[in-house]
Design a binder for these strands. Structure first.
Length: 914
RNA sequence: GGGGAUGUGUCGAAAUUGGCAGACGAGCAUGACUUAGGAUCAUGUGCCGUAAGGCGUGUGGGUUCAAGUCCCACCAUCCCCA
């Protein structure tokens, strides 16, 4: 360090000008770009750090100060780690495909790609204005062919693989074809059933005889990307199919329209094959607990047993069986196998394939009628808890395998085909819905858990007792056991009898990916006489053509269906091109990997580069993506891992969610009188843009306030007074750095020594570093403000021009550099240092310098503060206790009696108990 | 209904994880200065009280020398899933 040099500059700058951020922020932003300061570090021997923001969906509204919060804080974080000597990857891109952009384009009668260029340019302008240090050389844009080409490439990987339950991983579909030719599904079926995969069966002989088309149809049941019939959620307003994840309370996520059920051929990703791994691997992630919980709930793993009930029915002829589902058994999944002895009837979903088989001739008509009306109802309506239970008796009976009891088989719409096996054993004493059903149709109720609370076995009870605590009764071998231990006992019992197995069941459904829309990644699939055929890697990209109309066709097909040149394919395969496009979730499920190698023209990414940079060390974005993007990305990562394209199984090691910034004004609910803050939105006209704030106070003040406003994860209303407050602080930093003698020292002589200044400096370094690392940005700024206050005190104490003073200023600027990069750079040069401060290291806290010579110890009597003493830090515990007892404050409250106890907490307090 | 989170001054909040509640900032009040500024500087600012002191972290209880922090019950608000 060159202190003499610094002093010289202090002299030269005696009449320093005022802090005017507008005069130099742009200058430095341009200079940093020219000098490539934000290019991704790649210095051998340095550790890597991948810091990523969720890439935004560019809209015409641009960024608000709410969006800026996310970006500013990760930028501070990235700049900090650069100064700590890390190779930092901090990229940005745009999630461009999707419905809102398309709808906007329809409204404005223009092409969405034109809008995309405008919107992304505006986003980048705003981000630059904030001083964000992204490596723009690595920018990706999901709607550009050099990006979506690789989305299609990954789609092909999914299409060309299947999940092998024996290896518990994805494998090439060609492996499966080879195995089918040799042995059929003989080795696969049992493992598949155990894993809950509903694979069809086939022998080698059948496979040999099958046509190409039949083979393709068969393989569809295995592929990780597949086309299948599906009752889909149809949004009548946007005229598009929406995923389960996009439906909230029966309404479409975007349009808000009530979704309808429609049977269509749709493309899916077989995410259910990964349910168990997606559930288990959550354990190793440093994610907010609530996001982990939400994913767990969404995957909805429940442990229990699968139990077979024999069907007793004259209609059944032996030799009827032709599929893997045995026609003479009903398979149910239950999380409460301990209540098997309380099953008094069974309920099938109206869509269950065995309904026809079990129905007796006499009941045929009522059953048919019921099945027909159930079809018209949505899942939500069918399973609503307040809904009156409906159902009909099939006339058939099943045999309960644990006690050989003959129980009636009913059908009812509250049982869904999509969950479990589509059939349940009804235990009315211990399940509320079964209870209501039994009450309505006068079916027997038998208590098997003698509970402590409401007893569902009571004929007059109004609700079931689903408690898991109590003693087992009426349950054969389980009698007398505690309910808590009887689940395992029951599973062992059915396993020994060979009538059931331990199993996990999942609520997760396959991921519906196709959209009948224009603005998305085209699927690399051609429909031929032999079925759906995938293009080869060399045929990519399938380019999205220009169209004149973006509206969905009346048949619900994509506008692409109307373009003959696109639809009719001659080479390399003759057929009709798939006109559905991929939902934008596909684009965002792998973009974080593309950043490792964004310009690669031969593959989505080089394996060495992606393995070097990933997984993402710190991923930051809104909590609204808890079960959509974050779950899908995890699945794609696992598929690419299974197929050997990457060597990591989880994409995001650490995840942090920022709280939402709300509009500043308080609103009052006219009905409840409750006060609340609105979200910022253009339609409400309450958006505050970074542009207006920067215009007034500069980017550094905005960045500082984004950090300071609240704890990062807490939602908080914007405070109009906040930015000026931070600006005042920056002003003070400016003055104390350039002109420490300008202000008249205050009359009250401050008590601070050079040694103490040094201690405060190092304590601040320690605190600011730790706070940034733990995302406590608000307290990091508070510590810097305190440090600034201490510097004014030190100035008043006459410490300007001491070595400790220059060290303190030097540390201050380095610590401020990540927070207020423009000002830090400007001051750094003005006091005579060399460009650039952002290539300097963050200061290190010296533990010795942090140690205090004297400590203040609080003196309490019976837990109340009565006095305090200042003692040498190395004084013995006993001496400190003695001094504490001798204080006036203590003596006044102790009285004559000797203290009963004296507690000393090292370096903090003495508590005298009397 | 199930799951999760949060509750601290006038406001945003902090509290080294069981050890001085309210750091830091905003706002407000009083004063100083003046090149009258969106300044700057100083002092004060949880409640009651002149003071000594007492009370105080959603409510009620408990553990502890000591509780915002741990335990039990409840209330309110927000989010997610139904």
């Amino acid at each position: 360090m060159h202190f003499a040099f610094c002093t010289l500059h202090f002299q030269l700058n005696k009449m320093a000008d005022k802090y005017k951020p507008q005069e130099f922020e742009k200058k430095w932003q341009d200079r940093w770009v020219v000098d490539g300061l934000h290019r991704t570090g790649d210095i051998p021997g340095r550790p890597k750090m991948y810091i990523l923001d969720m890439f935004p969906y560019p809209s015409g509204d641009g960024l608000s100060v709410g969006h800026a919060r996310n970006y500013c804080l990760t930028d501070v974080y990235a700049r900090y780690y650069r100064m700590r000597g890390y190779n930092v990857l901090h990229p940005m891109g745009f999630d461009a495909f999707g419905l809102p952009a398309e709808n906007e384009a329809i409204k404005r009668q223009t092409n969405p790609s034109v809008l995309n260029k405008q919107f992304t340019a505006n986003y980048k302008r705003q981000m630059d204005m904030l001083g964000l240090s992204y490596d723009w050389d690595r920018r990706v844009n999901s709607c550009e062919p050099d990006y979506y080409r690789w989305t299609q490439w990954i789609f092909l990987r999914l299409f060309n693989s299947w999940y092998d339950p024996r290896a518990d991983k994805a494998r090439a579909i060609s492996d499966l074809e080879a195995e089918l030719a040799e042995r059929g599904t003989a080795d696969i079926s049992e493992a598949a059933e155990r894993a809950g995969l509903k694979y069809p069966v086939c022998t080698a002989a059948h496979w040999a005889l099958a046509s190409k088309k039949q083979r393709n149809e068969f393989l569809m049941y295995f592929r990780l990307a597949y086309r299948g019939d599906s009752a889909v959620n149809w949004d009548p307003v946007d005229k598009v199919v929406v995923a389960n994840e996009e439906v909230e309370n029966g309404r479409s996520w975007r349009s808000g329209a009530l979704v309808e059920k429609k049977i269509l051929k749709q493309w899916f990703f077989r995410i259910t094959a990964y349910a168990n791994r997606l559930h288990n691997d959550l354990d190793g992630l440093d994610w907010p607990a609530r996001i982990v919980t939400m994913q767990r709930n969404w995957i909805g793993r429940s442990d229990g047993a699968e139990v077979q009930f024999k069907i007793e029915n004259e209609n059944l002829k032996m030799g009827d069986s032709e599929s893997s589902v045995s026609n003479s058994h009903l398979v149910v999944f239950t999380t409460r196998p301990d209540t098997l002895w309380g099953a008094t009837f069974m309920v099938l979903s109206p869509e269950h394939p065995l309904v026809e088989k079990v129905t007796t001739t006499g009941q045929n008509e009522v059953v048919k009628a019921y099945v027909a009306q159930a079809k018209t109802q949505s899942d939500e309506a069918r399973t609503a808890t307040d809904k009156e239970k409906t159902g009909v008796f099939t006339g058939g009976y099943a045999i309960n395998p644990v006690n050989d009891e003959r129980i009636p088989i009913w059908i009812a719409d509250y049982v869904l085909m999509g969950y479990g096996t589509g059939a349940i054993m009804a235990v009315p004493a211990h399940d509320q819905r079964d209870f209501e059903f039994a009450k309505k149709f006068n079916l027997p109720i038998r208590t098997v858990v003698q509970g402590t609370g409401v007893n569902g076995g009571d004929a007059n009870a109004t609700e079931a007792n689903n408690a898991r605590e109590g003693v087992m009764v009426n349950s054969g071998p389980l009698n007398g056991l505690q309910a808590s231990e009887s689940v395992d006992a029951a599973i062992q019992f059915v396993e020994q009898k060979g009538v059931g197995k331990r199993r996990a069941n999942y609520r997760l459904r396959d991921w519906l990916i196709s959209r009948q829309r224009y603005w998305g990644t085209p699927m690399p699939i051609v429909h031929t006489d032999d079925g759906e055929v995938a293009l080869g890697d060399g045929d990519l990209p399938v380019l999205l053509p220009d169209v004149t109309s973006y509206s969905t066709t009346l048949t619900g097909e994509s506008p692409l269906a109307g373009i003959d040149e696109f639809v009719n394919v001659e080479t390399p395969i003759k057929g009709r091109r798939e006109t559905d496009t991929m939902a934008a979730w596909a684009c965002s499920s792998w973009y974080f990997s593309r950043f490792a190698d964004p310009k690669n023209e031969n593959e989505p990414f080089d394996i060495n580069k992606v393995n070097e940079w990933l997984p993402v060390d710190t991923y930051v974005g809104g909590a609204e993506h808890a079960v959509l993007h974050l779950l899908y990305s995890r699945m794609w990562t696992k598929v690419l891992f299974d197929l050997g394209h990457i060597n990591f199984v989880e994409p995001f090691k650490t995840l942090r969610n920022q709280g939402m910034i709300l509009a500043p004004g308080v609103k009052t609910d006219p009905e409840t009188g409750r006060q609340y803050h609105e979200k910022m939105s253009k339609s409400k006209g309450n958006v505050i843009t970074p542009d207006e704030v920067i215009d007034e106070h500069g980017a550094d003040a905005l960045r500082g306030f984004e950090m300071f406003i609240s704890d990062f994860s807490q939602p908080v209303p914007w405070n109009l007074q906040g930015v000026p407050g931070v600006r005042r602080w920056l002003d003070r930093v400016w003055r104390i750095t350039l002109d420490p003698t300008e202000d008249a020292p205050s009359k009250a002589k401050a008590e601070i020594t050079a040694r103490e200044l040094r201690r405060v400096t190092h304590r601040t370094i320690d605190k600011v570093g730790r706070d940034i690392e733990t995302f406590s940005f608000n307290t990091a700024v508070a510590a810097l403000m305190e440090f600034t206050n201490a510097l004014y005190k030190a100035r008043d104490a006459g410490l300007v021009d001491t070595i400790e003073w220059y060290q303190a200023i030097d540390s201050l600027l380095r610590m401020i550099a990540p927070v207020a990069p423009h000002m830090a750079e400007e001051l750094w040069l003005r006091i005579g240092n060399r460009y650039s401060i952002h290539q300097q290291s963050f200061p290190f806290a010296d533990p010795d310098a942090m140690k205090a010579d004297e400590i203040t110890v609080v003196v309490q009597v019976n837990g109340k503060v009565r006095d305090r003493i200042t003692v040498p830090a190395d004084l013995s515990d006993d001496d400190i206790k003695q001094q504490a007892l001798a204080t006036d404050g203590a003596k006044r409250f102790i009285g004559d009696a000797p203290p009963r106890q004296v507690v000393y907490v090292k370096g903090r307090l003495v508590n005298v108990v009397v």
